[in-house]
Structure formats: structure tokens, C-alpha cells
Simulated assay, not measured.
Amino acid sequence: MKQIILAYLFVGLLCTALFSLLSYGYGAGYVYLYWREWQIQTNLWVLIFCLILLSFIVQMLWLTVKRYLSREQRKIETVFSFNQLHPYEQLAVVWLLNAGPDQQNFIQQVFSQSGLLKGIISARLYWMRQQYNEALIALNEANPMAFELAEQQRIEIFLSKHDGEQALTHLEFLNQHELSPWLNNVKEAYEQRLISLWGQFAAQFPWLYLHSTRYGHLDETAKQVWLKQLLKAFDQASVADLQRLQQRYLDLSEQIEVRPYDIKVLWLKILARLPELGMQHQQLAEHLLGEQFNQEVFYLWFEQQLLCQNPDYQRAEQQITLWESRYPALPVLSFAKWHVYMATGRIQDAEALLHLYPDDVLMSYLRIKSLLQGQEDLVQQLNLIFENNANFVKIKI
């Protein structure tokens, strides 16, 4: 439609210029039309304009009727071959079925005449075949106007090659690059794709992600994956990696309370492995337990209280008492208080707690342990059984 309108405008301008040249010094001419009872008197300018307008209207009507008839014909036509489909229908089927790997030749053929996307599509097909070097060569020949699309494809190739340094370099550059105007209509999809690439990078290279110069690249799901990967690969961290991780948490500590609960729990598990951030660990744990009681979070908090160099039993007892008033009938709080009483020499108070919760496994453990006092070999065997429990707390008293 746009091309037809432009063509008519071009023809109209051409006719105007030609007629103006021929009419110079002779006037606009005179036209007299007589048909039955109708009489029209005008000049050639009006006649030419009416003829062009009539031609345009007739052509639009013809195109409308043609498209309608073609569409109706397609509805009743029986399709026996993929090749019978219109190219845009073939592309739609490939997209809906995610059939790119099966229809690579067709896709290559469709985009072979595209000066803008030919190189990028070729690189994508090479990437599907795991021919990464050929894909990078194809991207080097891509149209500069499609720079952002080529960069995203290049990042995906580097991720597939496990080249984290190159992937980070291009992600950082693309993150600061101003989007080309012709991509503004798909800006949201472009940004989502970039966020997805950051998520893949963070999951694949969790420690290298800490080298990024800016934060906020990841959505909530990707953040959870990244933090879980950090925990899995914690033993692989260097001293510099741990320093970056500490700094990353300190930078976001002011906003940590407004983060989703699961994200905060994962950060708490990381802080438990960073002795230098013991105070931040305690603050975050108490904040989480203030929102809702989570037994795993409580274990992490209580473990830190007992394993620190100079345990503050008085403060720990006060905090446990506060949670008992807020979350009544939780055996784990009595379990923790028993250890505080024993550590502070309040044997009678500790023994009084043993009468609570007769069916709870933690309190049953304490009752058995209290009966085995002085029999260290049996206590060690009991501890061995208890330590195999998934909820074991490293208690050293």
C-alpha cells in the first residue's frame, strides 16, 4: 500500500512538472465534456488530477477484492506440501513449531536477499549447528545497521563457547549502547532479550558476573539462579572474588529489606560463609525472622550466635524469648533455649524444658543426650545420628 501511494505521488509530481513545462506561455487549456444531460467545463489540470485519482481508486478496489478472494481461496484450499504455503506462512509455521533446526535451508533461502539480516541469520544457523567460528565470521560481515542484533548473537556464541571474558565485554558494551531508532518499536523485546543473556551469563559464570561494572541486569528468577550458583561454586572463589562479593552485598544492603523473601534467604546463606560480614548476617536473619518464622533461617542465625568467638548468650536468649511470644509452640525455640541455659550454667531451667514437646525429634534428642551425660562415646554416636539429619546445627558447647 505504501509503495503504491508513493508511486502515485511520484507520477503526479512528474505529470505536474511535465504539464507545467508544456503549458508555459499557453495557459492551462480548456476542456468541455458533454454526456446526455451532463456538461463539464474545466481545464487540463483538473482533468489530469481526476484521472489520477480515479486510477488510484480503481486500483485500490481491485487490490482489496483480490486479497479478499485470495484469502477466501486459502481457507478452502487443501494443503499437501509445506512448499505450497506462502513464504510468510512458512516462516510462521517455523516460528510456532520452533522448527529452525529442521528448516535451516528454507530460512537461509528466505533471507539470502536481505542485505540487513543475511549475515545475522547465517550466523544463527551456524550457531545451531555448533559451528561457532563460522558464525563469528558471518557476524563480522553483517550489516552495521543491525549492530545490536549482531552483538546479541555474538554474545550467545561466546556463551556457548564458554568464553566468559568475551561475553562480559560485549554485554557491558551493549548495556551502555544507545538503541538504534529503527528498533524502538521492539525496544521492550530487545531489552528482555538482553536481560535473558545477562541471566545466562550470571548462571554460567557466577563469579565472573561480579566483575560487571553495573548492577540491575537480572530479573528475580535469574538472581535466584545466580545466587544458587554462587553457593554451589563457593569453594572455587578466589580471595578477590570474595572481596567483590562482600562489596556487592554492602552496596545493596540498604535495599536488601525490600527484595523478595527467597532472594534474601539466599543472601543469608552466602553471608553465613563470609565471617567478615557477621553483623550483616545477624541483621538480615533477624529481619527475615521478623517477617515470618523460617526454621532454616533460624538455624543459620542460631549457629552464628553459638559459633562466634564471644557468644552473647543474654542477647540470644532475649531474642529467642521475643520470637516465642510472636511464634508460640515452636519446639525449635525451646531446643535453642536449652543450649543457652546449659551454656550459662542454668541446669534446672534447661531440665525443665525437657518436659516440653514429647513427640518432637529435637527435644527427644536433648532428652537422650541429658541421660547420657558422662558417656562421651554414646554421646558421639548420638551426635553422629543427629548430624545426619538435614536440619543439623553445628553446635559446640
Rank of each mutant, 00 (worst) to 15 (best):
M279F: 06
F106L: 12
D235N: 15
H339M: 06
S325L: 08
K118N: 11
N310I: 07
S122V: 08
E156F: 02
F106A: 05
P181N: 15
N143K: 08
H287P: 01
E172P: 05
S112E: 11
K118P: 01
N185T: 11
E72R: 13
L139R: 00
N143H: 13
D102F: 14
L378G: 01
I395Y: 15
A237I: 05
L33V: 14
A285L: 03
Q104S: 07
D241C: 04
D359G: 09
Q380D: 15
D219L: 10
L22T: 10
V379M: 13
Q373A: 15
L179H: 04
Y357E: 07
L354T: 05
R129S: 08
S112K: 11
L18S: 09
L51R: 01
V79N: 06
G345Y: 10
I385C: 03
V46R: 04
A285H: 04
L116Q: 09
P144E: 09
L63I: 11
Q304H: 12
E141R: 13
P311S: 07
L117C: 02
W35S: 11
N184F: 14
L300T: 07
Y34R: 14
W267V: 05
A390M: 12
E191A: 14
Y132I: 00
I137R: 05
K187D: 12
P358D: 10
M363K: 02
H355K: 12
L61Y: 09
M342E: 11
L9C: 12
E191R: 15
S196G: 13
M60N: 05
I320H: 03
L179F: 07
S180F: 13
